[in-house]
Design a protein around this nucleic acid. Structure first.
Length: 465
DNA sequence: CTATGGCACGGATT
DNA sequence: AATCCGTGCCATAG
């Protein structure tokens, strides 16, 4: 990984500049495709595998120490660690069951998710079923899983558990697919089922999820292969399919405009491009930022190829030299991309730390342009780096990176708070005044717009609940 | 007269 | 150059 952290020089050629820009605008998933095709087209490029940290599975740098596990533990240093983290594998299941951040002061998006799902399924359900659906959907956790037991719900409604399951099934089939499952495994199975209706899914993928989930999350592919009596390569292929197409945490990919389902995201599963967490999950501790790289190895120009070129005839030499040039350019550009991403994220998390620790109210309204000024890069650079990327927050929610630049999120959050605390319906002008008292200056007209965005009715149609 | 929503302009983003 | 978002201005509903 050392080469990702090289001091990167200013781009010299326009080709370098252009390709760096292209790479910068790619998400981790798109980057993987790009690297794949480059790798296939150019024999001078190769990936060398790296040793992995036995604790966290991260790739170890040349000097041997894992940058996360063996980082200096001094807490007085609150400079966040930014690390390029290769994640070609399944998102670790262990992510799920350690301490839960759902009690953190983040306002859960479940309200939005609840109504979003209900709108989709309400027509299919009877009145009684709707009640059950609402009950289930109001008991979702941040990952989109049920936080109540089906048996308890059945008892609560005095109906057989099969009826509850029937409703649950309808919910699971709604977008985001798999929502309302009881665990990642169930969510994956549902997604496989849905996927198999229109596409072919690899043989054994269902078996793996159904019977060997524990092995899957521990990445013990050879064990799985043994049990199913198929080759390890085959298992790896299937795992790749699963991690490319499925989402073990339905709600985490649920972002975007809830009130505008007309533009649903084509992809079921959004993998984050950046992971933000705190060491020991403690917000007071050091922040860890991981830039996700799609490969676990280091991309480099093949030394072997360099050797071979010397012993080759003059005619072929030119072509090979071309490859070599191209390869080294690509590697440089990739380094540059990662370097830029690191600088960007470091600055971003430093500025938005209150948001990451204390919730949406504390999101600072910054512009891409201002950040570009800080980093002394062109604003279009920031623009490219941000667009189309997603970030997993410490509370495990996945949001578009653009959310860090949302000018109105904190205002809208506070607005919601004001409205829910009102004793009598407040007019927009009054709300504007209240916002002003809390340090947010917006026009009255804007209050109206925020209100609409949050789905809050105008004052005269609002009854003090 | 007050509270809101529609439309258009200007700056920021893409 | 095209698009999105916050605002100001104005018309309309109560």
């Amino acid at each position: 990984m050392l080469q990702y952290q090289f001091q990167v020089h200013k781009p010299i050629t326009t080709a370098h500049l252009a390709q760096t820009m292209t790479l910068l605008s790619l998400s981790a998933f798109e980057l993987k495709q790009q690297i794949d095709s480059e790798l296939a087209a150019n024999p001078a490029l190769e990936i060398i595998e790296e040793r992995r940290c036995p604790h966290c599975k991260r790739v170890l740098p040349d000097n041997g120490a894992c940058p996360i596990c063996s980082r200096p533990m001094n807490t007085d240093n609150d400079e966040p660690i930014v690390y390029v983290s290769p994640m070609d594998d399944f998102i670790p299941m262990s992510d799920y069951d350690d301490s839960d951040f759902s009690e953190e002061p983040f306002s859960p998006a479940t309200d939005d998710l609840t109504s979003y799902v209900i709108k989709q399924i309400a027509p299919e359900l009877s009145k009684d079923q709707q009640l059950i659906a609402i009950h289930l959907l109001t008991n979702l956790d941040d990952d989109g899983f049920l936080s109540v037991k089906l048996v308890d719900v059945a008892r609560y409604f005095h109906v057989p558990i099969s009826q509850i399951e029937e409703v649950q099934k309808v919910i699971q089939l709604a977008d985001p697919i798999g929502v309302g499952s009881i665990n990642p495994q169930q969510a994956l199975l549902i997604q496989l089922e849905v996927l198999s209706e229109n596409n072919s899914i690899p043989e054994y993928s269902i078996d793996i999820v159904k019977d060997h989930m524990d092995l899957l999350s521990k990445r013990q592919y050879s064990e799985i292969a043994k049990k199913l009596k198929i080759s390890v390569q085959r298992v790896e292929k299937i795992v790749e399919f699963i991690s490319d197409n499925l989402n073990p945490f339905p709600a985490r990919s649920h972002w975007g405009n809830v009130r505008n389902p007309s533009a649903p995201d084509s992809n079921v599963y959004h993998r984050p491009d950046v992971l933000i967490s705190f060491s020991n999950n403690d917000p007071k501790m050091q922040m860890i930022v991981e830039i996700v790289m799609p490969y676990s190895g280091t991309l480099q120009v093949s030394p072997l190829y360099k050797q071979t070129i010397k012993q080759t005839d003059a005619e072929l030499k030119d072509a090979m030299k071309g490859d070599l040039e191209r390869a080294s350019l690509f590697v440089k550009c990739l380094q540059q991309r990662n370097h830029t991403m690191q600088r960007l994220m470091l600055e971003l998390v430093k500025i938005q730390k209150p948001y990451l620790t204390k919730g949406e109210k504390f999101l600072k309204p910054i512009t891409r342009a201002s950040l570009a000024g800080e980093l002394e890069v062109h604003e279009s650079t920031i623009s490219r780096a941000v667009s189309g990327k997603s970030v997993q927050l410490p509370n495990r929610k996945i949001v578009p990176m653009a959310a860090f630049f949302d000018r109105s999120l904190s205002a809208r959050t506070i607005l919601r708070e004001i409205v829910s605390a009102e004793s009598k319906p407040l007019s927009d002008t009054e709300i504007q005044k209240k916002l002003d008292e809390r340090g947010i200056q917006v026009a009255r007209r804007t209050v109206a717009k925020y209100r609409a965005m949050e789905g809050i009715l105008p004052a005269h149609l609002r009854q003090a609940a």
